[in-house]
Design a binder for these strands. Sequence first.
RNA 1: GGCGCAUUCGUCUAGGGGCCCAGGACACGGCCCUCUCAAGGCCGAGACACGGGUUCGAAUCCCGUAUGCGCUACCA
Length: 492
Amino acid sequence: MPFPTAAPVRVRFAPSPTGSLHIGTARTALFDWLLARQTGGQFILRIEDTDRSRYVPGSLEELMAGLRWLGLEWDEGPDIGGPYGPYLQSERLPIYHEHAQRLLDSGHAYESFYTSEEIEAMTKSVGQGDAAEVNRLMRVMPADEARRRREAGVKPAILFKVPLDGETVARDEIRGEIRTPNRTLRDPVLVKSDGFPTYHLAAMVDDQLMRITHVLRGQEWLPSLPFHMLIIRAFGWEPPLFIHPSIFLDPSGKGKMSKRRGSTTDQPTFVRDFRAGGYLPEAVVNWAALMGWGEEGGDREVYTIPELVQAFKLERVRPSPTAVNYEKLDWLNGVHIRMLAPDELARRLVPFMHRAGVAVCRDDLLPLVPLIQQRLTTLDEAPDLLDFFFVPPPPPTIEEMIPKKMTAEDTRAALAASRGLLATLEPFTAEPIEAALRGLAEARGWKAGDLFSILRVALSSKRVAPPLFGAIEHLGHATTLERIDQALALLG
RNA sequence: GGCGCAUUCGUCUAGGGGCCCAGGACACGGCCCUCUCAAGGCCGAGACACGGGUUCGAAUCCCGUAUGCGCUACCA
């Protein structure tokens, strides 16, 4: 980047392979990526797969495909490696065990043989509000009981010892200092009894070992920040900067954005839904960036990806929750479609035409692009606008062909006269076609709009179609006359 | 229950003590342009959650309330 705004950062996007890539998650990744690119730093993909029970096959592939589609290429990751690998947490288990042992040795952590039921009972006996008292209880177990359980094959969990009093001061770069009384904090689990680390341990260790400078993660982590500061200090490390972008809310703003699979065209939720729904990645990126971030002045809405890299400012990320606004996405998508070079639009339209059963290639589409470019909101609307150029449409109904104030006889006459004119017209291009047809309407005393409407329906079987004269030009002489003849036949 | 975070038009946001009887955008309404549909242009309606402070002066600072969201061992 020409103007790095700061020293190079190392940021990481660390999702769990537990499902599809959610747009809110993707937005955090976007902020990461923007920061890395703007400072000439590195964007690292790390996979947090320490909960075997939640693993969803194929989700890692979808995650990477989604990131790539958005254009968020990573510099280090499980597929491409890097100097700080491995980048799959499940392959780093010895590292976590070694670090857990260090905390055990330094007295910052302890083993616990209690069951969840026992802990629950302790909590109930003390009252939920008194975390420090629960901690006191959890930390003691008679030595012989502990030995008995260990010998019986019970595997301990390893917990971090939170100070029983005082307060922990942590800092979120967009919210400032956050102070938490230690007596409200329960000892967090570092290593589960199955031997796998929790996020609290694994993420802190990895961020340190991978030299992460800025941690961007969802707001749901904010309550854990004091734990993380405590853990980092227990290791004697220098903490990275923490930033917690807010969550996405439903369009109503009343609740958290649904995790349920959004229908592809209605309320897309996952990155693949946006893709399937005909949204441009650059529009999705533009839209996502605008939710929870705004440039100084705030008058700018449309950004290309390079412009975003340039303009993004971490300190301007907003801490308040954001309701998603799909209407704005639609608008932005239209804007970005109009910004595309025609051949690029043609190229991107191909898969959507194929999906609709119209077998065309980019070059077939290219001459038609000017007719529809400013009419598209999403790419998947293209087939409905263009199919009649490639596939004979179903015959129109007589009613839709006859304008309100005209009779079937008038309509027939209009069609016949148009046919006569077009049959000999040279050159067969939009301007002469328009001139001829307008002249005809005037000579016969028809409203031009009525004449055009008849022809539009006759040629495309649609009431709404691309501009008539261009459409006639591209349909060509033969097809145009043929369809007019068919319409004439229909009218008897 | 405890703790934490948040709160400007319906929505995204600008604004960070006087420039603000609050600016931009989407959506909405009207008009213009117009072969349909769009795109585009112009105009309009629409907000500082509430209550106390601090101050000559508060959307902006402080406190409280309300509301929303999140976390509350062995999900991330």
